[in-house]
Simulated scan of single mutants.
Amino acid sequence: MRFIRLLFVALLAIVLIAVALANRQVVTLSAFPANFGQFLGGTWSVNLPLFFVIFLAFAVGMLAGLVWEYLREAHIRREARQRSAEVARLENEVGGLRHRHAAPRDEVLAILDRPKTSTTPPRSGASAQPAPGTSLPASSR
């Protein structure tokens, strides 16, 4: 990808240099048409090389397009900011609900919900088979 970018920049530089060399003539760039600048006072024209006028026009066009797109997409950025703020608010609310509902409200419930751990060794007389007369199913071994 870096090579392709470097190749593109090199080709662009070659094209720009070729345009500059082919358009070295001096032209007059006027701000107002046909002597209208005299009514405002001063000279409203400048002599520049043609390639500079071309590059300047290209730069002004790019800048105008950038400003146009920035203003056109303002509502999209505003909506994205609003939705981002709403997502953050909802994530905070969900986090609070998880924290509030994850902890037991009563000490008795906390004791009942605690995982059972066996600290006493199993009795030696205990068998894996259910006692006679119980409704537990027999293990299938």
Rank of each mutant, 00 (worst) to 15 (best):
A103F: 10
F32S: 01
L21Q: 05
Q38P: 01
F32Q: 02
L56C: 13
A31E: 11
T120H: 06
L136D: 12
L48V: 13
L16N: 12
A80R: 11
R89L: 13
A34K: 09
H101W: 13
V94L: 11
R105Y: 09
T119H: 03
V26F: 11
G133K: 12
E69D: 14
P104S: 10
A88G: 04
E73T: 08
F58T: 15
V9R: 14
V53H: 02
A126V: 09
V108S: 08
P132Y: 11
A31D: 03
R98V: 05
E69K: 15
P33W: 05
F39V: 07
N47C: 08
P115H: 03
A88Q: 11
L56Y: 15
R123Y: 01
A57K: 01
V67W: 13
A59T: 08
Q129Y: 10
P115N: 03
G65Q: 14
W44G: 02
S118G: 05
T134R: 10
V27H: 12
T28E: 13
R24G: 13
L16H: 06
E69P: 01
R77W: 05
E73I: 04
A85C: 03
A10M: 15
G37S: 11
R81G: 00
M62D: 10
L11R: 06
R81M: 02
A85L: 10
A110M: 08
I17C: 04
V87T: 06
H75S: 07
H101Q: 00
E79Y: 01
G37M: 00
S139N: 14
R78M: 04
F32I: 00
L12S: 14
L71W: 10
A110S: 12
E93F: 05
D113R: 01
S135L: 08
A126I: 07
N47Q: 14
R2F: 04
S139M: 13
V53F: 08
P115M: 07
P130Q: 09
S84I: 00
V87Q: 00
L21E: 05
G42S: 05
L40K: 09
A138H: 09
I17W: 07
V60W: 11
P104K: 02
G125R: 11
R78A: 05
R100Y: 09
L136P: 03
